[in-house]
Amino acid sequence: MENVLGLPFAHELAFLVMLLETLGAIMLAVGWWTRPVALIVAMEMVGISFALGPTWPWVDRGIEYPVLMAFLALYMAVRGGGGFSMDRR
């Protein structure tokens, strides 16, 4: 990440992304703080989409997956956790 993308603090950024994708996924599955976590995940996926390339290579580098995840996370941020989530209890 540091050499290819030129991101500063690449190790710390990778650790934060790992925490978000692990703990955030658990929190989304349980339905705890669904809206803020989903909004942060959506912002992360938009950042990943722009980091993959400004030319938007749909087939070559697989940018469709972070774009799809961004839309799904944005949907969960708008819609909420649902009736069985921890937020409702």
Rank of each mutant, 00 (worst) to 15 (best):
A77M: 05
M86N: 05
V30K: 10
I48T: 12
M76A: 14
L28T: 02
E64H: 09
L72T: 07
A42P: 01
L52I: 14
E2K: 02
A73W: 03
G6D: 13
G62K: 10
V59R: 09
Y75K: 03
S49C: 11
P8Y: 09
F84D: 14
F15H: 07
V46T: 09
A14G: 04
R79Q: 15
R61Y: 14
G62N: 09
G62Q: 11
R61W: 08
F71G: 15
D60V: 10
G6A: 05
G31R: 05
G82V: 08
A38R: 02
P8W: 05
V4C: 05
L13D: 07
E2Y: 03
R88P: 01
G47V: 00
L72K: 01
D60Y: 08
A38S: 12
P36V: 02
A29G: 05
R35G: 03
M76W: 13
R61M: 06
M27H: 01
F50Y: 07
L20F: 01
L74P: 00
W32Q: 03
M1R: 06
A51W: 02
R35L: 06
D60A: 14
L7I: 15
L39D: 12
G6F: 11
V37P: 01
A51G: 03
W56P: 04
P54L: 14
L16S: 12
